[in-house]
Write a protein that binds this DNA or RNA. Structure first.
Lengths: 156, 156
DNA sequence: AAGATTTAAGACAACTTTGTCTGCAATATA
DNA sequence: TATATTGCAGACAAAGTTGTCTTAAATCTT
C-alpha cells in the first residue's frame, strides 16, 4: 500500500467534505458514518489536518470540522504530506539510509524519477477536482459505496 | 514505504548474490551477516523466492542458496511480485475494493498511469543490471555500508 | 554410523499500525 | 446555570509486520 490507511481515510474525508455544497462545519460523526470509517480514528486523523492548518474545527453543538481554505487551494500532496509526511517522496527505494546522489543504491536513479513523477502528479490534483468528479460522475468514496448508491439508486 | 521490509531484504540479498562472481550455493548466514539482515527472517524470505522458482537451495555442508537462473533472466518485478504480491500494481490509490474502470474512485485514472509506469520500470530492470552497478560503482546494499567500505576502504 | 553444517518450519516475542473506549474541554441552547 | 453536543486527548486493545528462537530434515564428511 503506497499510502497508510490513516492517509487514505483523511483523503476520502477531505474529498467528501469538498464535495458537499457550502463549506460549513460538518460533524466528524457524520463523515465517519457516511464513509464507514471508525469515528475515533478519523477524529485523530482530522486533528492532524487541523493542526497543519488544512482544516479548522469548532466544538459544541453545530460544531464540527471544515476545510480551512477553498478546495481549489488544497492539493492532494498537501494531505499526503500532512498525514504521512514526505518520507515517501524522499526515501530510498531499497530503504537504505543516507541514500542520495553522493552514495546511491543501485535503484536510486530509476526510483528518483518515479518518485518525482508521483509528487508532480499529486501536486497537480486539487481537492476541488476530486470533489467535482465525485459529484459529476458519482465516483465511490467508501467501501460500502454509500455515496453512489445515494446518487444513483436505480443503477447497479 | 512502497515495498515491505521483507521485499527490500529479498531484493538486496538477490542483488548481492548476483554481484558475486560465479553462481554457486552461498550460505544464507553469509548473506545475512554481510548485509546486516536478521538471519532467520532472511531465511523465510528466501524460502519464498525458492518456492517461486527464482532461487534454488541445497541443505547440508557447502549448501546454501543460489539464483535459479541467470541474473539476466531475473527482473526486479519478479522479486517484488514473489514477495509482496502484485497488489501494489493493481490496487486502488484510495484503497477501495472493486475500484476499476467500471466504478473508479476519483484518483483512479491518474494513479493507474503511475502504477503502470512503475510496473514498466521494474520490468525493465534486470538483476544483472543492478549487480553490475554494485560492482562498477560500489553502490551500497546495507545500512552499514559494508560492501562499499570493503571495495573502497580509502574513500570517505 | 556419527557428527557437523545447512536450509525448512513453526512457535513466539517485539514493534508498528489500526481501531476502540473513556473522560475532558469547549460551546450553544434553554 | 444546567444540559446536550461536539472535538480533544490519552489509555488501551486488536491486528499485522518484523524479528528471534528452537527443533526438524537433509546432506556432507569422517
Amino acid at each position: 500500500m503506497f499510502l497508510s490507511k490513516s492517509c487514505l481515510y483523511g483523503i476520502r474525508a477531505a474529498i467528501y467534505m469538498a464535495s458537499v455544497e457550502g463549506n460549513q462545519f460538518m460533524s466528524i460523526r457524520h463523515i465517519s458514518d457516511t464513509l464507514d470509517i471508525s469515528f475515533h480514528f478519523l477524529t485523530k486523523i482530522l486533528q492532524t489536518l487541523t493542526q497543519d492548518g488544512i482544516m479548522s474545527s469548532y466544538r459544541g453543538p453545530n460544531g464540527g470540522i471544515m476545510l480551512a481554505r477553498s478546495p481549489d487551494a488544497i492539493l492532494l500532496i498537501d494531505l499526503v504530506r500532512s498525514i504521512d509526511g514526505d518520507q515517501i517522496f524522499t526515501e530510498c527505494f531499497l530503504g537504505l539510509p543516507n541514500c542520495g546522489n553522493a552514495v546511491p543504491c543501485p535503484v536510486h536513479d530509476h526510483w528518483a524519477t518515479i518518485r518525482t513523477d508521483i509528487a508532480q502528479l499529486l501536486s497537480t490534483i486539487k481537492l476541488s477536482d476530486l470533489a467535482a468528479r465525485v459529484n459529476t460522475f458519482g465516483h465511490r468514496l467508501s467501501e460500502n459505496d454509500i455515496l453512489s448508491s445515494i446518487k444513483k439508486p436505480e443503477s447497479q
